[in-house]
Amino acid sequence: MKAKPISLSPPFSTQNEWVEALSRQDKRAFEWLYKENYASVRSFVLQNNGKEADAKDVFQDGLIAMWQNIKLGTFKLQEVPISAYLYRICKNRWYERLKSASFRKSTTLDDRPESFQEENSLDTLIRMEEIQHIQLIMRQLGQKCQQILKMFYYKRMTMEDIGQRLDMKAKSVKNEKYRCMSRLKQLASPQS
């Protein structure tokens, strides 16, 4: 008797639908990709001198890199299936880490196949460290600013809907959002 892989239905069928869903931060898309692919990436990282925490970092870093490429319009649909693309990014991210100075001291893994150097072609605008930096400065903005920015930029809600949620007029939400963004910009680059 042959084993049958468990078939879980993905929430989106075409790559176009996937890209659109990831672009609008549809949670179902991230949940599915996470649940279907994390185990493979984790097993790869653990087999290559990594720990549980590394697997999580590398997987999330890879997902965010893929999402960024979609947001910036640099993701090419037809080249490879989306899970394969994600798996490859994560692998490359891990090799990149292993090659970094801090890891080189503690591991014997050295040169990897050249194909993994194609990582550089993944033109990611911001990396995990920068995200953590923005996370830190956002904490200085105050609760309301964070709520407005989340609802507007991440949840993609309209000013009217945000106003209703926060018991504010749409115009006030708009003004407040501008104030929050100016403040964030100032905190991000205090010299300017």
Binding site: Q25, K71, A188
Partner: peptide, 17 residues
């Protein structure tokens, strides 16, 4: 601005992940 725009969303996405 683009870095901030992407960064804000990435922060919330990281929370969700």
């Amino acid at each position: 601005f683009r870095t901030l725009w992407l960064g804000i969303q990435a922060v919330f996405l990281k929370d969700e992940l």
